[in-house]
């Protein structure tokens, strides 16, 4: 047999205890939508596995104008919440009904590209992650948490327990482009957030998915936007900057060349959509 022990702790304390007793060889899963396919095909052959479905980290609650999301909150719950529309949209465009009933927000942060699109929206919202272990609790910016392809800043004795979305200013747009409309891996995902003082952009986030080892911020594009009035020239320049600074890859979905071209297109479209949306609201 491959798996010899499967633990299903009923509380965070139990989970932390199991993790410190069994060490880094303990595979931790939540919804199972990433790990189970690998186990089913014999690509991953873990001996000991811990499932987090029953640890009670599946609540979403408003917090200081933002949102506190338990790590094992399902994508279905994220879709149903009304506090942060961009997160609902990101969940809606992820996988399928059955998978959203299983997959979790925390798990999505460990999902390698071209999956893991919820992280793109969270990145544009300056989300933080909470990590807990036998040595205590710490928080980290999401942008610091994802460090490489399937690697994170998680210490061996730590669990990701929650995601915090602060109260942030500005308008948001989320665009996911895949090969089909539903249940599709991304060619590119773009999440933008722009705060303005009158016409002038005071703060901007341009987050990209499926064009790097993990969700990325296009910081040069953000710098182009700050101080601009989102005029067509600035939008073009930001799209060009994002296309230049992304790190696309080839896979069965798209070539790196195509992904880069689509970054240029969809960053522009996301910003144009945002401008149009604001104009409509202002009317």
């Amino acid at each position: 047999m491959t798996v010899v022990e499967y633990f299903l702790p009923r509380s965070l304390a139990q989970a932390v205890d199991l993790l410190s007793r069994h060490g880094p060889d303990l595979l931790v899963i939540a919804g199972g939508t990433v790990a189970m396919p690998l186990i089913n095909d014999g690509i991953s052959l873990p001996r000991q596995v811990m499932g987090l479905r029953f640890v009670g980290l599946d609540e979403i609650e408003p917090s200081d104008g933002g949102l506190r999301i338990g790590a094992t909150t399902t994508l279905t719950s994220l879709l149903r919440q009304r506090h942060v529309p961009m997160l609902a949209e990101a969940a809606r465009r992820t996988a399928s009904w059955s998978i959203r009933n299983m997959g979790t927000v925390g798990g999505n942060l460990f999902t390698p590209p071209p999956g893991g699109d919820v992280a793109v929206a969270l990145l544009a919202l300056d989300a933080e992650v909470t990590l807990e272990g036998s040595r205590g609790r710490r928080t980290l910016a999401l942008s610091e948490f994802q460090t490489g392809f399937m690697t994170t800043a998680l210490e061996p004795q730590e669990l990701l327990t929650g995601i915090g979305v602060p109260a942030v200013a500005g308008e948001t747009t989320y665009v996911k482009f895949g090969r089909k409309e539903a249940n599709t891996p991304s060619v590119v995902t773009v999440a933008v957030r722009v705060a303005r003082d009158g016409e002038v952009v005071t703060d901007a986030r341009v987050a990209l998915g499926a064009v790097g080892p993990h969700a990325l911020r296009a910081r040069k594009a953000e710098a182009v936007l700050v101080g601009s009035s989102l005029e067509p020239g600035a939008i073009d320049e930001a799209a060009e900057a994002a296309a230049e600074e992304c790190e696309p890859f080839d896979d069965g979905i798209a070539s790196a060349w195509y992904r880069r071209a689509m970054v240029r297109l969809f960053v522009r479209r996301a910003l144009e959509e945002l401008v149009q949306h604001v104009a409509l609201e202002g009317r």
């Binding site: 047999m1 491959t2 798996v3 095909d41 014999g42 052959l45």
Partner: peptide, 10 residues
């Protein structure tokens, strides 16, 4: 079992 077969293949 299938799991044993997969493990032996590996």
């Amino acid at each position: 079992t299938e799991a044993a077969a997969l493990e032996a293949v590996a």
